[in-house]
């Protein structure tokens, strides 16, 4: 499917600024849920942004840049919405929280590795986000539904990008196949955590999407791609997870330090 089908003109796009301006305060629980989805997108954007000017070809500088930019856009919307509950701003949340206050999935903070590892991470997260957002469009919370409606169209393109690269790398050369298998092996332990339900999600009812409800479709869709790529679903390690409770892998701290350094050096400043 061409991305033209989904192009949203600037005029009708939902933006972080519009959410702030509307000022619809979420409940504490909705805000905490928005924070999770916002952190997933923000940390992924932060990782992907590194690739710009380092990609294997110019077209990929553009593609990965585009995906990072979409994710950053989703992050800004979710965080701007969450921030209203606490009389804060998106930047307060992004720049002035410490590690244990971030509630992203551990998958998205994993280092970029080589291009195959990045693609493996993209493959997992974009299929997950697609399944999540296409259900969240029916959320009883109108703002979450609106953010999801915009995001799902963009993430659909991200999963196509990742799927095409999984096929190219797995079926390309011996070297690329070896790296694709290694990349999936590094990222797959973090899959399990993505589908865990908890009290917050249960308390939100139809405002949120139960992660466990996504697993079957995720397995079916990613399984079909892996089969076409003549790859096995990686088995073995399962990371303990805990990202939603603020538990992070060792890679997270240095990444966060880099992201926040300038803002924290000038806490009184605006930019």
């Amino acid at each position: 499917m061409s991305d033209q089908t989904f192009r949203i003109s600037a005029g009708e796009a939902l933006t972080a600024e519009k959410i702030t301006e509307a000022g619809e305060k979420p409940t504490e629980a909705v805000a905490n849920y928005a924070l999770r989805l916002g952190d997933d997108a923000l940390i992924l954007a932060q990782r992907l942004g590194w690739w710009i000017a380092r990609a294997p070809e110019l077209e990929e500088d553009v593609a990965l840049g585009n995906i990072a930019l979409d994710q950053l856009g989703h992050a800004r919307s979710f965080l701007s919405y969450a921030a209203l509950a606490w009389d804060k701003t998106e930047d307060d949340l992004a720049y002035f929280r410490y590690e244990p206050e971030f509630v992203n999935l551990q998958l998205v903070e994993q280092p970029n590795g080589d291009f195959a590892a990045t693609i493996a991470r993209q493959f997992i997260i974009s299929h997950f986000q697609f399944e999540l957002y296409r259900r969240l469009v029916d959320s009883t919370d109108a703002t979450l539904a609106a953010i999801a409606a915009k995001a799902v169209k963009e993430v659909d393109y991200h999963r196509d990008h990742a799927t095409q690269w999984v096929l190219r790398l797995a079926l390309g050369t011996e070297e690329s196949r070896r790296r694709m298998i290694a990349g999936l092996g590094v990222m797959w332990p973090y899959v399990d955590e993505m589908f865990r339900d908890d009290d917050l999600v249960e308390s939100l009812g139809d405002a949120a999407v139960r992660p466990s409800s996504l697993r079957e479709d995720f397995d079916t869709v990613t399984g079909a791609v892996l089969a076409e790529a003549e790859l096995e679903v990686p088995e073995g390690f399962v990371a303990r997870g805990g990202g939603r409770e603020g538990i992070h892998t060792e890679f997270f701290g240095p990444m966060l330090a880099e992201m926040q350094v300038l803002a924290r050096a000038h806490p009184e400043a605006t930019w």
Binding site: G49, G65, L72, D91, L262
Partner: peptide, 17 residues
């Protein structure tokens, strides 16, 4: 990776792209 606000980060990413 170090842009001091999310809006500036988005603009910078778009520019480099």
């Amino acid at each position: 990776t170090r842009a001091p606000s999310l809006k500036r980060k988005a603009i910078l990413m778009a520019k480099v792209q």
